[in-house]
Computed example of a mutant assay.
Amino acid sequence: MQDINSFNAREIREAFRGGTLSQPTPGLAPGYVQANLVILPQSDAFDFLLFCTRNPKPCPILDVTEVGDWEPRQVAPGADLRTDVPLYRVWKSGTLVDEVTDIRDLWQEDFVGFLLGCSFSFEAVMLAAGLPVRHIEEGKNVPMYQTTIPCQSAGRFSGNMVVSMRPLTPKQAIQAVEVTGRFAKAHGAPLHFGNPEVLGIRNINSPDFGEAVTIRENEIPVFWACGVTPQLAIMKSQPGLAITHAPGYMFITDVRDEELTFS
């Protein structure tokens, strides 16, 4: 059997589609941009598009599909948003009602798919720069936390920001600002490093999403805006139906990481 570490983005998606692979995506298809997914009926799509435009740090738009079209033609021609994510979440009136690996039977003719940038996209660059990425080291999903930072409201959508965390030494944190700041479409530079209570996070060892990772004695938590933010907005705003990726189970595009950077 082919080593999963040698799979490119298309091969990973085909493995998800065929049911031969289902796992969190950190570290998979290194060099390819990973994306958060939100699917909404057309009646809610404009408000959500406006929400993303007003909150580009947690919600950087990579692609928006045509109404009823499950193919993200700009970032992964030939892909299928109904099958190519390893784990989906189904929301009804803001309540999580199911997690599934295939949404073909749930697809509606008025659905619009949104793909949003993800911080997994800069992790290969962090590793290449000699910066540790602890959740990859430990084989875990990235830790993510709800904060008290409010997003700008748009139409029916509002809510607080979610952040992801990677522990680094203070010197490494400064380097990470430079390395990740070039990836504006993947959340860019960190929002904060140090005391998590500033963000309203009470227990760094109990993330709201993902898994806790080891923070060593000489390290501090470093926080980036996170594309799980729309899921909080869905919980608060309660659209009749929404489908998202499960946190850490991303859509992998054909776009290369370097295409998201600016010189």
Rank of each mutant, 00 (worst) to 15 (best):
G19W: 09
R156H: 03
R13T: 02
L241K: 04
S119A: 09
L49S: 14
P167L: 09
I39M: 06
L116W: 02
A9G: 03
D63I: 03
L260K: 10
T253N: 04
D257K: 11
F223T: 01
P170T: 11
E14G: 10
V100I: 07
L21G: 11
P150H: 00
F122S: 01
F223P: 00
E71A: 13
V112P: 00
R54G: 04
S93P: 08
G210C: 12
V75G: 09
S237V: 00
I215D: 00
S43I: 09
S6V: 08
V228T: 06
L115T: 07
G200A: 12
T20R: 13
D98N: 15
D102V: 01
E138Y: 01
L241E: 11
L81E: 00
M250S: 04
F120L: 12
V85I: 15
D84P: 04
P143F: 03
E109R: 12
H245F: 06
R182D: 10
L199K: 05
I149Y: 07
Q152A: 15
V213E: 02
P150W: 06
F209R: 08
V213A: 06
P196I: 07
V112R: 03
E138P: 03
L40I: 05
T53P: 06
V255S: 10
T214M: 14
C151F: 05
Q74P: 08
E217Q: 14
S6Q: 13
V38D: 05
Y88S: 07
I201E: 02
E11G: 04
E258L: 14
T148N: 13
F7N: 06
R216H: 14
R104C: 11
F16E: 10
P41V: 01
N36Y: 02
N203F: 15
A176Y: 00
Q74M: 14
T229S: 12
A76D: 05
P132L: 00
P167W: 13
I174G: 12
F7V: 01
L232F: 12
V142L: 11
L131M: 05
M161D: 00
W70N: 09
Q172M: 08
N8Q: 01
T95C: 13
S22F: 02
L115P: 04
G130C: 03
G240I: 14
P41D: 12
P143H: 07
F111T: 02
V133S: 01
S6Y: 11
I252C: 03
P58G: 12
G240R: 13
L260C: 12
D69V: 15
P56N: 09
N203M: 10
Q238T: 07
R166A: 04
Q74N: 15
I204C: 07
V85K: 05
P30D: 06
E211G: 07
P72T: 01
F193D: 02
S93V: 14
I252D: 00
F16G: 10
A246H: 15
S6T: 10
V177T: 14
P77L: 01
R73H: 10
